[in-house]
């Protein structure tokens, strides 16, 4: 059976010599292709520049939304970023596909800095691994109930009471 539709999305974050991050996201699909590239200032996680291009789209009107990307310059990647990006780039006057690529870039930034602490935890085995997770859980209230691994009843939550 032939595919009726295919989508390929790729995003990455790379370290720049000046310590900032260069983040890219691109999507290729049957009727749409676009790229977003942005520089994120470290340690503030502030978007310092952004560029984008819609290479292929169903209606030419989509390309008129490219200038909206500049509204994300100055935003800090942190709580509320999804709403801000959807508001400035997506929405009825914008392009939700472009907003999605900006958000994919933001996710890469977060994951880029998640790799290191996670790598430290995952270098441990057995009970030590469990203890390492529990240490993070006691330090960060946001981890509790963030997913099934840190939900009530999970072995990683043993001895950690959300009520305390």
């Amino acid at each position: 059976m032939l595919l009726s539709y295919a989508r390929n999305k790729h995003a990455s974050a790379s370290d720049r010599p000046d310590g900032d991050l260069l983040v890219k996201a691109a999507v290729q699909e049957t009727f749409f292709a676009a790229k977003v590239e942005m520089v994120v200032k470290i340690p503030d996680l502030e978007i310092s520049s952004v560029e984008g291009v819609i290479e292929r789209c169903f209606t030419g009107e989509c390309r008129q939304t490219i200038p909206l990307l500049q509204q994300v310059v100055g935003l800090r990647i942190g709580s509320g970023i999804i709403k801000l990006v959807n508001n400035f780039v997506g929405g009825p006057h914008g392009c939700p596909r472009l907003a999605d690529l900006v958000l994919e870039c933001c996710e890469q930034v977060i994951l880029r800095y998640t790799v290191e602490p996670l790598g430290e935890i995952l270098s441990k085995k057995g009970n030590e691994l469990k203890t390492a997770y529990q240490e993070f859980l006691t330090q960060n209230p946001r981890l509790i109930n963030s997913c099934i691994a840190f939900a009530e009843g999970s072995p990683l939550r043993e001895g950690i009471d959300a009520e305390s």
């Binding site: 059976m1 009726s4 539709y5 989508r7 995003a11 974050a13 370290d15 880029r112 790799v115």
Partner: peptide, 16 residues
């Protein structure tokens, strides 16, 4: 240096 990379691929079929 590449610090992180994610790829998502989706294919859609019409079995009926």
């Amino acid at each position: 240096m590449l610090g992180f990379s994610r790829t998502k691929w989706v294919g859609v079929e019409r079995p009926d």
